[in-house]
């Protein structure tokens, strides 16, 4: 699904990512760990195509197709969807105005959107300006909702769990699982068939991992992926020994 080779990225003339390699196969969900300021968000925003993150070397492939020349919305068309860590507030633009433009034209799609509005308590945000005055947890909810209705094939979540109370975390876990459910195969495959979209989740706590099955975790340190492994084991080690553990770990990422 996603392949990143030797990616170097500059932000305001500073090299933040220094040779990042990462591979997420179809149907797998990976976690991205790493200390504050290590470059997780920069990697994520670069995958989405935000122009202030300049790729100086390397490539990003979606389904073996290089996407570096594509605009943000063209990447969305390819199935990339992002829930941002700190999305901007947009004065004067109500969530419902945005919905009108992205809502599915067919009846079924509209019903689905309405369903999700009810299921995840979004109605109360519809008449408010996008992200304006929303609490931390509410912003996550709104971001995940928008992600959900865009039916992405690759979900990128930047700290969907930070600042979220335990009860809401469960709800957010539910939203993520709903987005991971691959709706394209629903009709054709038996209902017990486990078919998922792919995902990349940046997180500091493993809290969200209680709700979502993660196939693998990567640790980003100082602009490089230093180590990978089982998410729960890695997180336990980090909690006990700090990121030092990853720097010296045996699973050095030598891709």
């Amino acid at each position: 699904m996603l392949t990143i080779n030797n990616l170097h990225v500059e932000v305001q003339d500073n090299e933040v990512l220094k040779s990042v390699n990462l591979e997420i196969p179809d149907g797998e969900v990976h976690a991205l760990f790493g200390p504050n300021g290590s470059g997780k968000s920069v990697l994520i925003m670069t995958i989405m195509g935000y122009p202030e993150y300049k790729v100086t070397e390397g490539s990003i492939l979606i389904d073996n197709k290089d996407i570096l020349e594509l605009d943000i919305n063209e990447r969305v068309k390819l199935g990339v969807g992002l829930s941002e860590q700190r999305p901007p507030t947009i004065k004067g633009v109500k969530l419902k105005n945005l919905l009108e433009l992205i809502e599915h034209k067919d009846k079924k799609g509209q019903l689905y959107v309405n369903d999700m509005i009810e299921k995840f308590n979004i109605r109360k945000f519809l008449d408010r300006n996008i992200n304006d005055g929303l609490s931390g947890g509410e912003i996550k909810q709104s971001e995940l909702f928008l992600l959900l209705i865009s039916n992405p094939k690759l979900l990128i979540l930047d700290e969907p769990d930070s600042g979220v109370d335990p009860e809401k975390l469960k709800k957010i876990g539910g939203m993520i699982n709903e987005s991971l459910r691959d709706k394209r195969f629903e009709k054709r495959l038996p209902s017990n068939h486990l078919n998922r979209n792919s995902g990349l989740i940046a997180t500091h706590s493993a809290a969200i991992l209680d709700y979502i099955h993660v196939d693998k975790a990567h640790v980003m340190i100082n602009g490089e992926i230093k180590c990978y492994g089982n998410a729960n084991i890695l997180m336990d080690q980090i909690k006990e020994n700090g990121y030092e553990y990853c720097i010296n770990c045996q699973h050095k990422n030598n891709m």
């Binding site: 901007p88 947009i90 004067g92 633009v93 105005n97 992205i102």
Partner: peptide, 27 residues
Amino acid sequence: DTGEVNYLQSKGLDEMQAIALIIRGFL
């Protein structure tokens, strides 16, 4: 604000739709 335009694009709008939406909000 290009940041706002980019954000709306990341939600699936094309650039023109994003600008129009921001202007509508402004008005």
